[in-house]
Every structure is written in C-alpha cells, then in structure tokens.
Design a protein around this nucleic acid. Structure first.
Lengths: 224, 224
DNA sequence: GCGCTTACGCCACCGAGTGGCATAAAGTAG
DNA sequence: CTACTTTATGCCACTCGGTGGCGTAAGCGC
C-alpha cells in the first residue's frame, strides 16, 4: 500500500522549511534593494538564522538567489535518466526532457520565483556568471548521462548539442522573465523554449547582406 | 618618413609594463600554487605594487588571470567593425573574424599565457564563471555591431548564432589548452576553432539509438 | 625651474566566506 | 520519563577580496 503517507523524518521538514524561508526572504530582499544592497547578515537576521547556518544550506550569496533555476536543472538531470530514447535527434530528446522537468517542478509559485531569479541575474554580473557556470557544469553531467544511456560517438557534437540547448534555454527565459513580470506562466515559458530550439537551425544558416551604403565602420545613423 | 617611431607617451609605457607584470606574475603564481592558494597581497608584493593599484588595473582577482582571453575578444570586436560583409552566413563571418583577431593578437607568448589562463579556469569555478560571463557580455556587443553594420532581421537568431560561436570557441580552446600544455601553437588553435564551427551543423541533427539492452530507468549496474 | 594632471601608496573599513567549539534539539534505547 | 547519541545550530574570531578617502610623488607642459 502506498497509502501510508511517507512520514518524512520530522527533522527533515524543518530543514526544508528553513531552506525555503531563506530563498523567499532572499528573493524578496534582493528584489527590493538589489543583490548588492542586501548583506548576508541582514538576510540571516530576517530569517532568524545565523550566517554560519546559511552557508550550510547554500554555497554563497548567489546560490540562494538562483535556487529556483538550479532546482529545474536538477529535475532535468533526473528526467534524463528515464527519458524514452527512441531514434530522435539528441536536441529533440533534450528539449522534450527539459519540458518534462519543467512540467514536474514548475507550479505557479515556482514561476514567480524563477522569473525573479532570472531578472535579478540580468542586473547582477556575479549572479549571471554563477548561473552560466552552473548551466555549463550541469551540462557535463548531462553529457555523461547521455553517453551512459545512448550509443553515442565520442566526438564533441554531443557536448555542442548541449550548449545549443543551453543557448536556446537562456534565450527563452530571457524573453519570458521580462514579459512575465506580472503573471509568469509556465505554459508560456514552455512555448518559448520550444520556439527557441526551433530557431536554432535558422541561426546556423542566417545570412545577411551589408546595409545599403554602409561599407565599413562609422556611425550608422539609426537604422531606419 | 614614417621611420619616426611613434613615441607612445612615455607615461603610458609604464602603465602597460605594470599591467603586463601583474598578468605574468599572477599566471606564474596561480600556476604554481593554484588560484585560491595565492592572495592578492602576495601578488602585489611580488610586483611591488599596492593592492589599491591592482584594482585600478583589474576588476578583480579573476580578471587578471583571464586577461589574455579578454584581449582576444576585444580584438574580435574591433575586427568585426571592418570585416568584409559579403553575403556569407553570419556564422562564417564571425568565424573568419575571430580567426583574423587571433592572427592579430596571438604571438607565441600570448599562446602560452592563454593556454595557461584557460587551464586555470577549468580548475577554478569562479574563473570559469567569470569567463563565461565575459563571453556572454561580449556577445551582446557583437550582436549590436552586427545589427549596426548588417541588414539583419530583429529575430533572436542573430544572438543564437553568437552563442553557437561561443560554444564552438570554448570547445576548441578546451581541447587546445590541454594538448598544448608544452608548446601551444596558434595555428593549432585556429584549426580547432574551424573544426568546432564545422561540427555545429552535425550537432543539430545528431541522433543516437538507445544502448542495446538499456531501455529505461534503474541502476544501470555499471554498464559493461 | 613651476604649476597641473595623473597615478600611486597608505590606511581604515565593509562584507563574504571559513574553522572551531560549545550547545540545544531530534531521535533512540532503556 | 531518563539517559545517551546524533546532528543541526549558534557564536566567535579570523582571513581575504574589494572600496573610499586622502596625501604625495611622478610625468608633463610651460
């Protein structure tokens, strides 16, 4: 019987509550006064937790602010373990898996937090750097899983495909986080991810003629 | 007579010497004891410069270590201003421009420093994060220049193409920095960049069958 | 030589992040 | 309910990256 509601070691609940409290408080404070305008001491004071404890939950100031995005990628990695691997192109597989992960972890509250996280990361270089690094390092695990589950050649195209997904993801979220300032919708985000991935082939072959009359450098005088 | 060697404001020379001394000392120290094993005070002491002065040259500890790579991208941006923009695909244009920038800034000494920088960044998350962020932020300028000089649509494919280039670049340097530990050759790097860009289309369509016998979840029990 | 600008050094300070140790709370056995 | 173990937390002191302010010396034009 799975009816026995798994008694999550009462202890563990407090930890998760503390963790979530830190995330929520951090996002609220950062949104109000900016990432750099809030000290860890303030944040810890708000949640009534010692700074020492904060660092037992998060690796740094940036990490707590990026937690929602991190959770999604963790889910992505999990989904990847069980994703059906028929003969689809890798990129398609990864897109579908990402969408599945999104569907699993993303409720309405998540959407709000995630959009806020991303907006914050756009105005805070250390957060953006942290985020990029996290994606890239997660990508390593992704490639590892892929190689374990699939019969892939050793060439670097697998890794490249992962970078493509990350690029599309970032593009999608960037648009989403802006427009979704008021009411971020997970459905909208999913659609944007799909569109961004679909735009990838076109970006490879995109060709443009030089602007009429503009041959070299110099002020372009506001493209008409 | 252009033989009059342009007297660079004697003042400026000292600045550039100090800057380069900081870079060289930093790379040497980091290579010897690791990024985290060297304090700024030590570095400044080595170059006989005050810590205050260090921060007038570099934005942080990571920046001095990534200087060689940064210089290349700065050159890339400059080259992009005058790059011939015939009807080639964007990606091809960017690749050629990157190669041109490489040819301009990269001498033998640069190759050694750059390879060291990149190797360092691979074992130091804060450096890698910084590097990624720098690429991404440079990419913004690249897209801006492209839109100014070329008649490009407003859709996000331009940006995507830039991300593709960055992905290929990172892949190329990654391989190069490892093998070129002893004798990093610029020619080799250029070839790797070309190969990586050439591999992009294939990564889009890369397809793989599931591993024979591995169908879904469950501990793979050490695939053997 | 004499001012003017510019870069530098010094010092004091803030805030992020870490290690060590004592302690209180959760869980376990009697 | 008590006693004992485990583990998360709090507190404290400390290191180090990074910044602001101000005095001063080194270019540099006159």
């Amino acid at each position: 019987m799975t009816t026995a509601p798994p008694p999550p070691p009462l202890r563990e609940r407090k930890k998760q509550r503390t963790r979530q409290a830190l995330i929520d408080a951090a996002l609220a404070l950062f949104a109000a006064r900016g990432f750099g305008g809030v000290t860890l001491d303030e944040l810890c004071d708000e949640v009534e937790v010692s700074k020492r404890t904060f660092f037992r939950y998060f690796g740094g100031k940036e990490e707590v602010a990026m937690a929602p995005l991190h959770d999604l990628w963790r889910a992505f990695l999990e989904e990847l373990e069980t994703a059906p691997a028929d003969g689809r192109p890798l990129l398609e597989l990864m897109e579908a898996t990402l969408l599945a992960a999104l569907d699993r972890v993303a409720d309405e509250a998540w959407a709000g937090r995630a959009a806020l996280s991303f907006r914050l990361s756009q105005e805070t270089s250390s957060m953006d750097a942290h985020n990029l690094h996290f994606c890239e390092s997660t990508l390593r695990s992704v490639v590892a899983v892929l190689h374990r589950r699939l019969d892939l050649p050793d060439d670097p195209r697998t890794r490249l495909a992962g970078d493509l997904l990350v690029a599309a993801w970032r593009l999608a979220v960037e648009g989403w986080a802006v427009t979704a300032a008021g009411a971020p919708s997970v459905t909208d985000l999913a659609a944007r991810v799909h569109d961004a991935v679909a735009a990838l082939p076109g970006s490879l072959t995109l060709t443009a003629r030089p602007r009429p009359g503009v041959t070299g450098s110099g002020p372009p005088g506001k493209a008409g």
